[in-house]
């Protein structure tokens, strides 16, 4: 498993139609991600990194090319099948946390389990475990608005982890946090990557954040301009 491809992208393109003009957010992206990789996608705004992230996360479908996730061609799946993939294989962490307001950390973490086959009696326990992993044991019943930004992002990570996904996607996970808290969050990511062998893909334009990654991918105007597996930046 260690060296097999988790993700295989073949000539992925994504074109948006806005009125009569076509915007080519991704032109032709081919890239493989192995199990256990920690990949940073970098690039200026408008380079297509968010579009790529949405396609990787099965929130969006490419208009051209093929996307294989664990050898399944998910680019052919319909809305409902994609929802199932998101539920079982993928965990999301967003820049603005995207937690349900007026809801406890526990309830937020339980959310993916409500849409899975996990029996109701187990969901609480699984969510508690997941929260403990990100260091939030004892804060389960705090509502999201009573938590700090860093704590909210940890809840989001706990939520992403609760279903034991193979792929964790993080879109600017430290963008709304100060440097110290951001580093703490990144340490959690690297720990999960090392100890649990979870594949992580993160989008960032912060070089310091990107330094935590083992592989880098630079996008500009919808194309990969540079990729780097050596540990050297830019």
């Amino acid at each position: 498993m260690e060296n097999s491809n988790l993700i295989q992208l073949e000539n992925i393109s994504r074109t948006y139609k806005i009125g009569i003009t076509e915007v080519r957010a991704l032109k032709s992206v081919s890239y493989n991600i192995k199990h256990g990789d920690l990949v940073a996608i970098m690039g200026p705004s408008g380079s297509g990194k968010s579009t790529l992230m949405n396609i990787l996360g099965c929130l969006d479908k490419p208009t051209g090319g093929k996307y294989f996730l664990e050898a399944q061609e998910v680019s052919t799946f319909d809305r409902n099948k994609l929802a199932g993939i998101r539920n079982k294989k993928i965990g999301f962490v967003f820049q603005n946390f995207n937690l349900l307001s007026r809801t406890t950390a526990l309830e937020n973490t339980e959310l993916p389990l409500l849409y899975s086959n996990v029996p109701s009696k187990n969901t609480k326990e699984m969510a508690m475990k997941s929260l403990a992993q990100v260091g939030l044991a004892g804060r389960e019943l705090h509502k999201t608005n009573q938590l700090s930004g860093g704590e909210q992002q940890r809840v989001a990570i706990a939520r992403a982890l609760v279903n034991n996904p193979t792929l964790l996607l993080a879109d600017e996970p430290t963008g709304n946090l100060d440097t110290k808290t951001g580093n703490e969050i990144m340490e959690i990511f690297t720990r999960l990557n090392k100890e649990k062998k979870i594949t992580i893909v993160l989008v960032t334009h912060d070089p310091e954040v990107a330094e935590f990654a083992s592989r880098w991918l630079y996008l500009r105007d919808g194309d990969i301009v540079k990729q780097d597996n050596t540990g050297e930046k830019r």
């Binding site: 996360g57 929130l59 809305r79 929802a83 998101r86 539920n87 349900l100 959310l111 849409y115 899975s116």
Partner: peptide, 16 residues
């Protein structure tokens, strides 16, 4: 709408 988006991102289907 945001809540619906969050639910969908963690795997809620149309039917859910």
């Amino acid at each position: 709408i945001r809540e619906i988006g969050i639910r969908m991102s963690v795997g809620a289907r149309e039917r859910d």
